[in-house]
Simulated assay, not measured.
Amino acid sequence: MESTPPYLRIVEELRRRIATGELGPGDRVPSTRQIVREWGVAMATASRALTALRQENVVRAVPGVGMVVSGPEPTPADRGARVAARRGSGRGVTRDQVVRTATEIADTEGLAALSMRRIATELDVPTMSLYRQVRGKEQVLLLMADAAFAAHRLPHAFPPGWRAQLELLCRIQWSIYRRHPWLAQVISLTRPLMAPHAVAHTEWALRALAGHGLDQHAQLHLVATLANHVRGTAISLEREAEAEQDTGLTDDEWMQAQADVLAALLTAGEFPHLARLTRSPVDLNVESLFEFGLQRLLDGIADLLEQ
């Protein structure tokens, strides 16, 4: 049984990477979200590990960049040599590299951290060189979204029954949003992205509802309502991750910290129904909201088809 706290094991591994030169002065260290994914720990544990390294002056925070290894900044020649070693000398930046780098930034630090300048910094190229591959940030977002949907391809074979087909589609979409929390902010139902792999989801849903007596108006609105339930619930994913990173508290820990405030509100007697519910705590989270809402929407579609 390991006695070393998880955050210390992360600290030791990052120290090792720095000591061996895998991470040099000025290099970005894994963000809290990257640590969560790599080590499978809570956001609070990841934050604690980076805080410990920062207190030891092993790393420092750079605005607009993130946490980097402390020490003398590498010269342009040193930085160029490392980049050349990573991607091969003489190779230019490709569109795929731009999209992958942008996605990594958004996955680990959120959409607010994404900019053309930041992408160029990560690739160690002039910002203007990116415009040889993409028109600007809007196109980058479109390509990121399309790549996210493309990585979770729809099955070629349809499961039997419209309900199973729509449920499968929604679960695939939910898994995409879970993998890329920023995506919910990019997707719009009234101004849909013209991303082929995202449009394929609409086609799948319309095919599932075809032949059941619904007119085009009803079909399209049902498809949009289901997609909006998944996206609307997923909007909370990035905000929760950011809140956990900022406070170092999980949702449960935050609620426990607010227990006295909530108790004072309920004691006043102005919210009797809410007070009755809190006597037997209900597990309310984004997963339960997704599941409950999905089944109720499918129940409603079933009623509509029966009519």
Rank of each mutant, 00 (worst) to 15 (best):
V62G: 12
D96F: 00
E138M: 03
R82H: 08
P74G: 00
G64A: 13
T103D: 03
S115Y: 15
M128L: 10
G136R: 02
S89G: 07
R79W: 03
T94C: 03
V134L: 09
T103Y: 01
R135M: 13
D146W: 04
Y131A: 15
P74Q: 00
I105G: 06
S115H: 14
L123P: 03
M144D: 07
Q139H: 01
I119Y: 09
L130V: 13
G80T: 07
M116T: 12
A102D: 06
G136P: 08
R60M: 12
S89H: 07
A61Q: 13
P72S: 08
L142P: 01
A106V: 04
Q97G: 12
R87S: 08
P74H: 00
T103E: 01
V69S: 06
P76V: 14
K137W: 06
S115K: 10
T127E: 15
G92I: 11
A148D: 03
A112L: 08
T108V: 03
P74W: 01
V99Y: 02
R87P: 07
T121S: 07
D107Q: 10
D96L: 04
R91M: 09
S70E: 13
Q97R: 00
V68G: 11
S115W: 15
S129I: 09
D96W: 02
V98G: 11
A148E: 04
R100A: 15
M128D: 11
G90T: 10
Q97W: 01
V99A: 02
A106Y: 03
V68A: 10
M116P: 13
V69Q: 04
R82T: 05
V69H: 02
L114D: 09
R100D: 15
R118T: 13
T94S: 06
R118F: 13
S129Y: 11
V65K: 12
D124R: 00
A85N: 06
S115L: 11
R79A: 15
P126T: 05
T121Y: 07
D96K: 00
V68N: 07
A113K: 04
K137C: 09
P126A: 10
S129D: 14
A113L: 09
V125W: 05
E138F: 01
A120Q: 08
Q133K: 13
G88T: 11
M67A: 13
L142Q: 02
G90V: 14
A147I: 05
A84W: 09
Q139I: 00
T101I: 04
V134C: 10
Q97L: 10
Y131G: 15
R82N: 05
S129A: 14
E109R: 11
V62F: 05
P63F: 12
V98Y: 07
R132H: 15
G71M: 02
E109Q: 10
A150R: 02
M116D: 15
L114V: 11
Q133R: 13
D107M: 10
S129V: 13
D96P: 05
S115D: 14
T94P: 02
R135A: 14
T121I: 01
S129E: 14
A102P: 12
P63V: 12
A85P: 07
P63W: 08
P74D: 04
D78T: 14
R91P: 07
D107H: 01
A106Q: 02
D124L: 01
G80D: 08
F149G: 10
V83Q: 10
R118D: 13
L114W: 11
V98Q: 08
A84H: 04
T75Y: 00
S115I: 15
A150L: 02
G80Y: 00
V125Y: 06
L111Q: 09
L123A: 05
P74S: 05
